Amino acid sequence: MVEFTLNGAPVALDVPPEASLLQALRGPAGLSGPRFGCGTEQCGSCMVLLDGVPTYACSRAASACAGRAVTTVEGLGTPEAPHPLQAAFLAEQAGQCGYCLSGILVSAAALLAHTPAPEEEAIRAALDPHLCRCGSHNRIVRAVQRAAREMRA
């Protein structure tokens, strides 16, 4: 049993000792936002926030998250009250297939939490661990810039 805070609520997940955080999130927690892409920290589709820091869920042991706070894309906002990043990504049409977006959104949220007005280079650096095969990079950067402006307004 691993106990931690998931998207603001305490959870206790019954997972084997060798289970990754991604397996725990997609299995017992029933979430579909964090995705399995490569399993080797090369694509970022599994990225979540662990105590506010972007973290690969595919290679992090679920047991290492005991007593900590995990935030997935599901914890950023809701359809009724989307996070400014989610709204900006929709407005900028920043996704195509969407497979990478949950990881990108949580990494962008971490960036904006620490740097409310990031330069384009900082945005690109923060999102560098993410692989977007659709080539939506420029629209993604514009969406993060838009969200940053709206969050400061």
Rank of each mutant, 00 (worst) to 15 (best):
L112M: 10
I104M: 15
G135Q: 08
P129S: 10
S107D: 01
R124V: 11
A108G: 13
L127E: 01
H130K: 12
D128K: 14
A143S: 05
V141H: 01
I140L: 13
P116G: 07
S107N: 09
H137G: 07
C132E: 02
I123C: 03
V141D: 03
R146Q: 14
A109M: 07
I140Y: 06
L111K: 09
L131K: 08
T115E: 14
R142N: 13
L105K: 08
A117F: 00
I140H: 01
A122C: 12
A125Q: 15
G135D: 11
A122S: 14
E121Y: 06
R146E: 05
C134T: 08
T115C: 11
S107P: 00
A125W: 00
A147L: 09
I123K: 03
A110V: 11
E119R: 08
I104F: 07
A126S: 15
L127M: 07
L112C: 10
Q145C: 14
E119M: 11
G135V: 11
V106I: 02
N138Y: 06
V106D: 07
A143I: 00
A125S: 13
A108N: 08
I104Q: 15
E119G: 14
R142M: 05
P118L: 09
G135S: 13
R139N: 14
A147E: 09
P118S: 09
A117M: 14
A143P: 00
V144H: 03
A113E: 15
R124Q: 13
T115I: 13
T115M: 04
D128V: 02
I140A: 03
A110Q: 09
A143W: 05
V144F: 05
A147I: 11
I123W: 00
V106K: 06
L131N: 06
Q145T: 12
N138L: 15
R146D: 01
L111D: 03
A110N: 12
V141S: 02
E120S: 12
V141I: 13
A110F: 06
L112Y: 11
S136M: 07
R139S: 09
V144W: 01
R139D: 05
H130W: 07
P129I: 09
P118H: 01
H114G: 15
S136L: 05
E121P: 04
L112R: 05
H137A: 08
D128M: 03
E120D: 13
A147D: 04
G135C: 10
V106P: 10
I104N: 06
R142C: 10
